[in-house]
Structures are given as C-alpha cells and as structure tokens.
Design a protein around this nucleic acid. Sequence first.
DNA 1: CTGTTAGCGCGTTCAT
DNA 2: ATGAACGCGCTAACAG
Lengths: 347, 347
Amino acid sequence: MSSKDTRKQYLTLNDVAREAGVSAITASRALRTPDIVSSKTRARVEAAVETLGYVPNPAAQALASARSRLLGIIIPSVTNQIFADFMAGIMDATEGGRFEPQFGNTRYRMQREVELLRLFATQRPAGMVVTGIDQSPEARRILKQMACPVVQVLEVGSDPIDMMIGCDQTEAGRAAVRHLIDQGYRRIGFLGARMDPRAQRRLAGYRDVLAAAGLDDPSLIVTTPQPSSASLGGRLMADLLAAAPDLDAVFCNNDDVALGALFECQRQGIRVPSQVGIVGFNDLDVVSVSVPSITSVRTHRYDMGVEAVRMIEAAIDGNPPAMAVINQGFSLMIRQSTQRRPENGAG
Amino acid sequence: MSSKDTRKQYLTLNDVAREAGVSAITASRALRTPDIVSSKTRARVEAAVETLGYVPNPAAQALASARSRLLGIIIPSVTNQIFADFMAGIMDATEGGRFEPQFGNTRYRMQREVELLRLFATQRPAGMVVTGIDQSPEARRILKQMACPVVQVLEVGSDPIDMMIGCDQTEAGRAAVRHLIDQGYRRIGFLGARMDPRAQRRLAGYRDVLAAAGLDDPSLIVTTPQPSSASLGGRLMADLLAAAPDLDAVFCNNDDVALGALFECQRQGIRVPSQVGIVGFNDLDVVSVSVPSITSVRTHRYDMGVEAVRMIEAAIDGNPPAMAVINQGFSLMIRQSTQRRPENGAG
DNA sequence: CTGTTAGCGCGTTCAT
DNA sequence: ATGAACGCGCTAACAG
C-alpha cells in the first residue's frame, strides 16, 4: 500500500528496552513473567510500553516459542442457530484472554474436517474444539498428533479423544418421544432434516421408545439430507400427513422443522395440539412464544462454548478437569403443542 | 503435552530443499512463484513436498514477509441470523484461498470495536471488514493506519474509509412504510429492538414517509435497546397495542420482532392482515412460511460476505473495483401479512 | 533461472 | 535479578 518502504517494520521489544534503559530480554520478562523482575524495572518497562504504544508481534512469538494463541474451532455450519450460540460462548469466554478462536466451517462434510485439521495443525494451535464424536480415523490421528488439548462438543460418548462436553442425543430423543406417549399420542412420526450424526441419534432414541411401546411404524419416519429450515419442515410435514393421514404427533429433529410443521398444520386446518402434537429440539426462543408454543428439548450451546474454553485453559495450566467427559444433560420444556387436553398455559 | 522435547520443531523448507537437491530459496520459489522456476526443479520440489508431507509455517511466513493471510472481520453479533449469513458468505469465499478469516464480536459496543481493531492491527492483516458506517474517529484512524484494503458492510454512505458494500437502510425503511400506506393502512407503528445504527436509519425512513403523508405520531414508536428476539417482539407489540388500540399496522425493525408481533396478535385474537398489517426486515426463511406469511425487506447478507472478500482480493491484486461503493439494493417481498383485502396467495 | 547472505521479532539457552 | 548470544522457519535483497 505505502510506496515508502521503511526498513523498520515494527515497534519492537528492543525499542521498549532502549526507552526503559534495560536489555531486551529484561523487557520481555517484565511483560511475560513480571514476578521474577524487580518492581522498579517492571514499572519502567511498563511505562515505556505505554509511551511507545508497543504491542507484541504474534507471528514472532509463535515462531520463537513454537506455540500460538490459536484455538481452532471446527463446526459444521455457522448459519444454524445452534452453532451461532456455541460460537458466542466461545467468543465470550476467550475475550480478553490468552487465546484467539479461529473458526472453520465443514458444511457437514467429513473430508473438509480433515482438511481444516491439517490447516490448523500447521499453526500449532494451543487447543482444538471439534463438533460431535464421529471424527474419521484420520481426523482423530491428526488431533492426537497435535499434542494439544482437544474438546469434542455437542455429544458425549465412551471414547473421547481427550475431553468432551455435550449431551446424550439418543437419550434426549427418547425423552421427547416418551413425553408424547405420556400425553396420549400413539401415531407418532419423525421429521428429520440434514440428518447429521446428532439427528441420527435422536432418531435412534425415537425408534427405541416406540419399539418398546409397540408403536413403531417405519412409514411415519420422513427424513432428508437437505439443510433444515422452517420451509423444509413444512414440506416434510406435508409429505408425512399425505402418507399417514392418521398421524397424531411428530417429533422434529429441531425447532426450525417443528415451526415449519406447525405452520403446515395451520395451513391445512389441523389443530395443534388436539389433533396433532409437536415436539421440537434445541428450544430456540421463538418456539416459546409461537401460538401454540412448542414443546422442545432445551440444550445448552452457549455454556458448552464457555466450558470448552475453560477446559482447554485448565488442561494447559496443568489442571485437567476431574471429569474428562461432561454430560450437560437437557431439559424437556413442556408447552402447549403437546397438551392434548388444554389444561396448562403457555410455557 | 509430550514430555520429550525434540529439538527439531518442524519440517522445514530446508528439508524439502535437501530432498529435492536444490537450495532452500529455490524450493521456496518453486512453491510460491512456480512460474519463475524451471519446470524440472518445480517437479522435483513438488515431489519432495509430497513425500515429506511438508507444510509451510504460517508464523514464519508472516514474520519474514511482514504480512499475513489474515482477514479481520468485525461484526456486532454472531447469534443474529444476519451476521451468521454474512459469515457463511465470508467463509465460503475464503475456503481454499489465500486468506483466513478471523472474526471479532463487538456485541454492539463501539469501544470493543476499537479494541478489536488494535488486536487485529498487531497481526498485520491482509484486509479488514467492519460492520456499518459509524466507526468512531479512533477506529477510522486505526483502519487507515493498517494500510490494507478495508470494506465496510451492511450499509452504504458517502464517506467510505476505503470500500463499501450494503444497502441504504433509510431507503429500505421508506419502501416498507410506503407499501403499508399503499395497502391502505394509516395508523402505522414502529417496533424496534436493539436500535443499532441500521435500526435507527430504518426508523428515520419510517419517519420520513409518515411525516410526508401527514400520518406521523410519535406515540406509535416503541423501541428498546434490548437484543431483538421473537419473544421481545411480542412484548413490544403488546406495549404498542396497549398504548394505541387503534393501531392498524407495524413496521418491525427485523423479522424476529415481526414474528413475535404476529404471535402476539394471534394471542390477542387480532387478525393479521385485516385488522393489523405487519412488515418485517431481512426476509428470513421462516417469515415466508408463517401463517400468515410476513411481508419483509430482503437483504443480501451472504452475497455481501462473498463480495467483500472479492473486493479485498481485487484490491490486493492491484485491480481495485471500479466502484468503491456497491449498493446492493433490497427487495420488498410482499406477502399475506399486508394484504388488507385477501387477494394474493402466499409469497 | 539459481544461490548466498542476512535478517524479521521474539524466546530460549547459557552465563553473570 | 539481569544480560549475551543464538536460532525458530521463512523471505528479501543482491549476486551470479
């Protein structure tokens, strides 16, 4: 940009040292390990930093120390509200701290996860966060080779790479469907978009419970690999209603689909919850105020982001958490959409 | 993590050079500027890279060249769908390319923007993207000092720092309110959450048009600095209806608020669009399938992200776009929520 | 077209 | 508690 090539690229520690009347290394120590420096020198260095406006060069730090401030975060989507909430947790937890998050988006492609991991690996990250528990063998290998703390988020499982935080998706699916049965629904369908590993496990939970109750019927399951949205949810619901006119409830893979399903019912003049009950997943704000409000499984994405950062920090500081696997659990938020006999108010 | 300290930290260009039987700099050139190297050497270097599995060290590259692959992106929120869409555009446009985006979240605080800019400045970014056109003087100063291409997104204005892409928020507000007047609505309110600069400008557009039509009434304007959401939209609508029972339409700051307003009407038994008309903003998927579907102003966040990256790349390559300020425009998506006499179908 | 030399700014030895 | 010297991996500058 500037045509004038100044030889001096940067304001360096040496400048600070000169200004403070100490050696460069002393200046460095005053900033990085203030405890082992006399309070006098420390004050002088701090003053010099202030007057000069010195800021360390992260590239030089990373090169010299062979480590970085980078926290690599790999998620399958940014437009999905779930991951947006998770990112917010990560960002808030890292703000003003030792680490800088950098996000990679796989768009739900496993091969892209491996590519991103390779990319991150070149930067010697201080820690890594990956989504889910279904990493490819190659991805697991790279992660282990990185020799940094790793957190798998969103789910919990029995074979952590390092640490985990999330909830049991299958169990959450079971809880949702049990609730529908408890409310007296019997012809219970499943609406699933995207069908990533989490969606598959919720479906497994759905199957478990219905099979145990003798209510399972494969024709009530409608899924698609397409990205989930309310409009897609509406189309899936229309398909399901066409295939199974006696349907009396649906468990939806997520709240977008559930909201779309509700709108489709309204369009067809089907009353919710008296004719058809609806359960969503994730408990987005909007489903708590829709008319009727929609029963949903609350998950804790924001906290998951915050905790993942805390876990990595603790591991780096040599205080690995007592529990390498944290099951955050979930809460079934019961609302109007599953109140077959209107007794309760809004959620 | 590993207790064994290997002296050799990394697989370096020297290793590649040795393997290929050339000098380090030749190896470097073969990878960075393949054109100025004999095809024979190039092939040998490429083979060496392949067999060794060499990957460059970004920290060393950044240090030696005093530039980086970093694209600094500053947004006010990640949980807002608008910015999620924008991020998706940025991520898709940078995937596999020369740049790596890094996102900073101001949470709508101007001071935080300055802090983030300072942080980014230490990394010598290749380009910067900032949200809106209301940067503080200090923020503008830092951006200019960075001496890299800068794109301001979401809005357009007359005093770009460098480049701009977005739409005229005031004009979009005007278009929305004009449509309501055209449909025969007269007591038109404004519902605004968050009230960031974009929301303020939409409100200004609302005021313009109503004042020109002699329909302005300050008591019809309800705003709050709280983060927008459907539930908040419902509360704002309840407040407005209580204050102005003769209300016959609302222009909502965004679609979340609009959806909440619709639900509040349904809760109170107010018919939309016959008794009250509703216009949203941004055209989220969900408002196209709600019952009734909601008229909204479509904006182009994803494309904005893609284009911002293209503009920066072009500027770096010495082909600055002919237009430094790109007005993407907007489209009013007319749907059921403003059809006072039900004539049209869904959008 | 290729090689040599000399740093980039910082952290890590070793000394004192 | 402080300092000198060296090197991290790469690229810029100048030779040839």
